[in-house]
Design a binder for these strands. Structure first.
Lengths: 129, 129
DNA sequence: CCGCATCCCGTCCGATACTG
DNA sequence: CAGTATCGGACGGGATGCGG
């Protein structure tokens, strides 16, 4: 039994909200990149490769709003903007790292479960051709 | 600095995938409910209150496919289906609980950051009227 | 260099209605 | 009781073009 009794429904939804935020397509990659040290906008974009400016800007804004990332604008020409993790942002990624290690450790168990399930359910429709 | 060097980009995306899955609207609530012991479909629906049958079914299916939940059908009339966490499912929610506690501990820091940000950015448009 | 605005598509999710 | 089918709105996210 999991000791869930310390977490009520409201707390649970709050966690879910956070998970949704950091579980999106780009957040983890961006934070990982910033974990190596402060980076400029273009450097991030280059490092992530396939991300669009729109999503990079939006994700950074969300991270900034939540207090995980700090945005420093140097008003020169051309403009120069540097992003860095805040202490809170670094702290967040301790439990995230734990989850990451769990995922890494159990990735093949999950894969196996999926394959077994798919084999048990020969339904060709809702699993892409 | 976060020790991210043990996690390459591929691993990072994998984690992101898992986070997206469990960070959806209902998964955590359902797992928390099942953490108290096996439950039947209707019992879950009653407990969660506002969830639709569609989402409950879909979420349970996903959890089952990933090997986190076991589905036991008792072919009587009326039909009877019971859901329970698998050992893998219970194990997963150790790191999740750690993250939950972090969230609980820092919830007001995040709120404060958001309010500060919103105050700094008096943009009435993209934040609901 | 950095970021915003627009268009557009796919997916998520809720509401409703129907079946074994 | 447990589940499926269908419709429709909301949102995420990519492509492109414009402006400090």
């Amino acid at each position: 039994m999991i000791p869930t009794d310390t977490h009520d429904t409201g707390t649970c939804q709050r966690i879910s909200e956070l998970l949704s935020r950091i579980g999106d397509k780009w957040t983890l990659l961006i934070v990982r990149a910033l974990g190596q040290g402060p980076k400029r906008f273009s450097a991030l974009k280059r490092e992530l490769g396939s991300i669009s400016q729109k999503m990079l800007t939006r994700t950074l804004r969300n991270l900034e709003r939540d207090g995980f990332v700090d945005r420093k604008v140097t008003p020169v020409t051309p403009p120069q903007v540097e992003y860095a993790l805040t202490p809170l942002g670094m702290d967040l990624f301790r439990p995230i790292a734990a989850l990451a290690e769990w995922t890494f450790a159990h990735a093949d168990a999950i894969d196996a479960a999926r394959h077994a399930y798919d084999a048990r359910h020969p339904d060709p429709d809702h699993r892409a051709a």
